[in-house]
């Protein structure tokens, strides 16, 4: 029974590797973020300009393809690549805005509930239970029928769902932090509740919030795509990946690229977000593995 020295070195090297930043997912996300900001400038064509003479051109590498329309065109001759690039705005932009709005509300209410306890806690937590039991799709359908469809609507609907997840998690964290000795010691030193929340509680829930936030982005992207697919998401003609998949549905056999590429885009985005989220979680807080 003996493990040689170079084998030992190999084991250390593999332990080091296991904790490294997931390069490909991060690269994809960085490219997408650049795309979200600069889509208008770098997209090869306008995502809205129709040209019926160029309709249903297949991707460039297929017979009949055109190099200037790399991923082909749709039914009315719009460039698929440009629409995908612009569509990232709807997908990622809506998701990030939702996480920001819903996250902020959730964190604040969660901290209040956890620290104050008693009736305040009960009221907030019943609200959380309530909003977690609303079917998202139904809520979106109702809201779209009473208001003009817009990206803001989608953000509102998704925030109404997502805040509760943050609130419940933050409250749990606060409850356990409140029992920690350093909070008691801060009280012994004479700290006010406001100071304890700001200096001792909030900084300690940040990690959890960042981890969960990252992992939730993927979920929100999927939700947004589902809403768009059902036609209650970001309204046309703004391209959204979900509605692009829906539009291409009828032509799956003849023009499969219409649905396939937006589908792959959703898949890549969500997968990358999840890889990144897992990595952040393992870095910051391996305790959160079950989330």
């Amino acid at each position: 029974m003996k493990i040689a020295i170079d084998e030992q070195n190999r084991l250390v090297a593999s332990a080091r590797r296991s904790g490294r930043l997931p390069v490909i997912p991060v690269a994809i996300l960085v490219l997408l973020l650049i795309d979200v900001i600069f889509a208008g400038v770098i997209a090869p064509h306008s995502p809205y300009a129709t040209d019926l003479s160029k309709r249903l051109i297949p991707p460039a590498w297929l017979p009949g393809g055109d190099v200037s329309y790399l991923l082909g065109t749709d039914l009315v001759g719009r460039d698929l690549l440009s629409r995908l690039m612009t569509g990232a705005r709807a997908s990622l932009g809506v998701a990030l805005a939702t996480i920001f709005v819903g996250g902020t509300v959730g964190i604040v209410l969660g901290m209040v509930a956890g620290y104050a306890g008693g009736r305040t806690d009960s009221v907030i937590m019943r609200l959380v239970d309530g909003s977690l039991s609303i079917p998202v799709i139904l809520l979106a359908l109702v809201l779209v029928s009473v208001r003009e469809p817009s990206a803001w609507n989608v953000i509102l609907v998704l925030s109404l769902v997502i805040w509760a997840r943050f609130a419940r998690l933050v409250r749990g964290e606060v409850l356990s932090l409140r029992e920690r000795a350093f909070v008691a010691l801060a009280q012994v030193a004479g700290s006010s509740s406001a100071r304890i929340i700001a200096r001792h509680i909030f900084p300690n829930i940040l990690n959890t919030v960042i981890v969960v936030g990252t992992l939730q982005v993927g979920w929100v992207v999927l939700l947004e795509a589902s809403l768009s697919f059902l036609g209650v998401g970001v309204p046309p003609p703004i391209p959204a990946w979900g509605s692009m998949v829906a539009d291409g549905r009828a032509h799956m056999l003849s023009a499969w690229w219409l649905s396939l590429f937006p589908g792959i885009a959703i898949l890549l985005l969500v997968l990358s977000l999840n890889f990144l989220g897992d990595w952040i979680r393992d870095r910051l807080d391996p305790r959160l593995r079950q989330v």
């Binding site: 029974m1 003996k2 493990i3 084991l11 593999s14 332990a15």
Partner: peptide, 20 residues
């Protein structure tokens, strides 16, 4: 596992090497 590895040695219980 996988961090912990026995690198060397013998553990005999009543004449049997457990590591083998």
């Amino acid at each position: 596992k996988p961090a912990g590895q026995i690198v060397d040695g013998e553990v005999w219980l009543d004449g049997v090497d457990l590591l083998k």
